[in-house]
Design a binder for these strands. Structure first.
Lengths: 321, 321
DNA sequence: CTGTTAGCGCCTTCAC
DNA sequence: GTGAAGGCGCTAACAG
């Protein structure tokens, strides 16, 4: 494995000159550059990234921590984040936190160990002890005082969904959302529902359920059994909306005739061709791109927004009239 | 940021002793160890991984390259690979190759740049120029002469599925599979179908379709329109099976009464509660674990199997009688 | 068991 | 514009 020393010797120049030519910092005579290029090719030289990292005190790697990669929303975020990072020549480290706070704390350690340059955090936990100067950005959650975050306009978009249900003739609209352990923008989804119902003088039938991914079917079954008379439902996620759809069918209800359903996320369509959900579609590509932008701004010490809101919009499917 | 030098000074020992105590190689007196531990705590020291990497000529990072993370099968593989690596203190780098050969070639460069210690490859391309000594392992594909790979017992499992369809009374069984650009174990799925039909003296209605993820619905619509009389279908993936289900419904067919369907993969259930597919369930956890085992064996120069077969088994759902 | 020393490969002064 | 030298933080080999 050739080193920069070998290249320099082969080209008949000093290592300094070779280094400058390779990294592009500082000027090198055309003659020297030509000989160095030739040497690089001849020796099949590639710079050793570990050495660069040590010298530059970086590692050209960003981490993204998600509760689980096995969820379409997170998978999609990761997909777009990778795309952005890759464009900048930065690698992406994926960590399944599996909702474990310990695993998330390890991530913080990674920064200190110079194993990653920054982290995109998507978590259900609060981390109040996070050093505010650490290069971290969060998606959809407030995880600590000054950690910047990007999020969809959950409140407005959710209102739009609930209003839509009402406008399509639903009279008794319910709502099921997942519980978040930490203060989260996601909570605005059911707050929007609540406000909306109150303003219309309608009773709120909100259920904020504490469950794990995968238990959506059970949660919805129970809810629909306890609320047999609803004719509209705003679900806090597509997984819940989907579960509502199938449970409704199992209970002999027709969708959307007997029950109209609106979800949130807009991520199921790729894998579940049916039903075509009416749902609030988040602009995941923009969420990812913005998170990466903010992260780089932090790392470089540039200006950045503490909070960035990405517009989500209601997509009409076949689960509403 | 404290270095090992600071720790040594604080503890009143030499750097060598501190290093030995920290990395666990070599013996250190209890007394020294105690003082070093205290110094570490006091200075809040963590070893710099970049320096370790440079010194050790490793980077404690493995890469996994998949066509897209936005597919339940790949997402699940990645999930389990991360779990295995994480247990060994190794980080996982995820690369979306997006089926681009260039992107895959970059990965090979990464090894040379000492940016990753090894790669788990899942690709649709052939890479005949791969150096056989490189620490690479492939899943489900032969990507080069001596690159080891792990795979499910595609042939036997597929036969089981087709035989099951026949045993449940299907008379005219069709098959749709995706085309692979490279010689792949996946091809055994439709080979099994073909053999099975021939042995039963039944006509083969095989379609090996060249399409991208996401186009499954169209592919199946066309197939079902061209083959309106089939009463059984073996699909080469769950996505195809799912698409077959909905297209059948759209065409006024009942499943499983008029058309029985069996898929392959066993990965849809998490995100699509319905329909409960009859499908060949791959043991993805074992595939991932084995791939990681083989990779580490290669890196360490230990013995390993060139080909490992993981058993998949038919799971009966509601799309067969 | 311990401290010193010499690199790992690269980048960045610093004189020339 | 150039080459030599020092050092990033750590580990391994050596002599004590």
């Amino acid at each position: 494995m050739a080193t920069i020393k070998d290249v320099a010797k082969e080209a008949g120049v000093g290592v300094g000159t070779a280094s400058r030519a390779l990294s592009g910092n500082g000027s090198v005579s055309d003659d020297a550059r030509k000989r160095i290029d030739a040497a690089v090719k001849k020796l099949n030289f590639v710079p050793n990234q570990s050495a660069r990292n040590l010298k530059n005190q970086t590692c050209a790697t960003m981490a993204i921590s998600v509760p689980t990669i096995r969820h379409p929303f997170f998978a999609k975020i990761i997909y777009y984040v990778e795309e952005c990072l890759s464009r900048r020549g930065v690698r992406m480290l994926v960590v399944n936190s599996q909702d474990k706070k310990s695993k998330e704390s390890e991530m913080l350690e990674m920064i200190r160990q110079a194993r990653v340059d920054g982290i995109i955090f998507i978590t259900h936990h609060a981390h109040d002890s996070i050093d505010e100067n650490l290069p971290i950005v969060s998606v959809d959650r407030h995880i600590g005082g000054k950690v910047p975050f990007v999020t969809s306009n959950n409140y407005e978009a959710s209102r739009e969904a609930v209003e839509y249900l009402l406008s399509r003739g639903a009279k008794r609209v319910g709502c099921v959302c997942g519980k978040t352990a930490v203060e989260s923008e996601v909570q605005l989804r059911y707050k929007a529902y609540d406000d909306c119902m109150r303003e219309h003088g309608l009773p709120s039938r909100l259920e904020v359920a504490d469950f794990k991914h995968g238990d959506e079917m059970e949660v919805m079954r129970e809810y629909l059994q306890n609320n047999p008379d609803i004719d509209g439902l705003f679900a806090g996620s597509d997984m819940l909306a989907n579960a509502a759809y199938y449970n409704a069918l199992l209970l002999g209800k027709r969708v959307p005739e007997d029950l109209q359903i609106a979800g949130f996320d807009g991520v199921m369509d790729e894998w579940c061709p049916h039903p075509k959900l009416t749902t609030v579609q988040q602009d995941i590509e923009a969420l990812a791109a913005t998170a990466v932008d903010v992260l780089f701004a932090r790392v470089r010490g540039e200006e950045y927004e503490h909070k960035t809101v990405i517009k989500a919009k209601l997509k009409i499917g076949e689960t509403t009239k």
